[in-house]
Design a protein around this nucleic acid. Sequence first.
DNA 1: AGTAGATCCTGGCGGC
DNA 2: TGCCGCCAGGATCTAC
Length: 262
Amino acid sequence: MPELPDVEGFRRTLDSCGRGRQIKKVEVADAGVLRGVSAPRFARALEGRRFVAVERRGKWLIARVEGGAVVLLHFGMTGQLLCSPSTDPPHRHDRVRVLLDGGLELRYRDQRKLQGLRLATSQAAAERALAGQGPDALAVGREYFRGELGVRRAKVKAVLMDQSALAGLGNLLADEILWRAHLHPATAANQLSGRDVDRLYSTMRQVLHLSVRAQRVPARRSWLTGHREAKTLQCPRCGSSLLRGKFAGRTSVWCPYCQPER
DNA sequence: AGTAGATCCTGGCGGC
DNA sequence: TGCCGCCAGGATCTAC
């Protein structure tokens, strides 16, 4: 689930629910989601303090806490961040609960625990932890995008999903963007023409803006995403049968007519 | 440099 | 109904 648009939604949740409120208590139901930090140390760093700022970079959510600590959240494939009244019964996948002043709590809910929460003790440490992340896909300029794709021989889909090149795009977004830009996912990035790259860039921005507004990749009929789970896969644009295959280890869906191989 | 494969986890689904 | 393998919108590491 969580790609850039979803995480942007979680950022808003944390910002509106948590920022400025004092953290009363941190309850770790499953320490398996804490990375590089014990539950007691994690709780100690947060309790009694406030979240002072909330940012996002790619698929990472970054929450600054009074006193200099920074919480880094990644949602893997199944993670979510929710804001609920403390009286709501916990869900069995609520791994960490952050009880706030005023009766609300933040919940890190995750079925698969493929990623999790990290604690950086300073701004500098947080920067180091995110050093491998490229610029956010929404913040990246056309020139940078051209440069990055121009030098890569890998498949364009692999480059779009490479978080060190461009942070925030996942499998669904990559498929959607390539479908709308009429590009086959296995095309070598450096084989794309200047026009292709420009179209890809504009398409990426459009898809991201629409998705951020919906806080997810919208599964509408007019979007490729709305069709990938159907039994008979049909291109919403031309009606051709969609193809399904693996690139860069991930399932891809594409239209052989709209996105011819070259 | 690029990619396939295994790995970290859990759960839903289809097939037998 | 039960068991099994496969699959899932992520990321990292190893081996070619």
